[in-house]
């Protein structure tokens, strides 16, 4: 893994098309700005991983787990 040290307001580029800028550094977080073509998709890693972890694996165990869960999930009745 390439490691860069950047300060607030500084940036770096990835290839020719994408610039990544450090907008703000706070306690335990950094705010990042990304400048690049719209067709290049930017995805939060944890969202992609969660989707992959959610893949349905057809098995008796999954089936039982889901059935138990849905027995407790109810859509609220619409107010009349």
């Amino acid at each position: 893994m390439l490691v860069l040290r950047r300060n607030q307001g500084q940036s770096f580029t990835v290839g020719d098309a994408v610039e990544v800028r450090v907008l703000q550094i706070g306690r335990g977080f950094v705010k990042i700005g990304i400048i690049g073509p719209r067709e290049i998709e930017v995805v939060r890693t944890e969202i992609a991983r969660l989707n992959q972890n959610a893949l349905w694996k057809a098995s008796g165990e999954s089936d039982e787990t889901l059935k138990e869960l849905v027995s407790h999930l109810r859509l609220p009745r619409k107010a009349k």
Binding site: N51, A54, W56
Partner: peptide
């Protein structure tokens, strides 16, 4: 093979 269980958010 890509299949994700989803639920209307109102159920949660």
């Amino acid at each position: 093979e890509v299949s994700l269980p989803v639920v209307p958010v109102q159920a949660v």
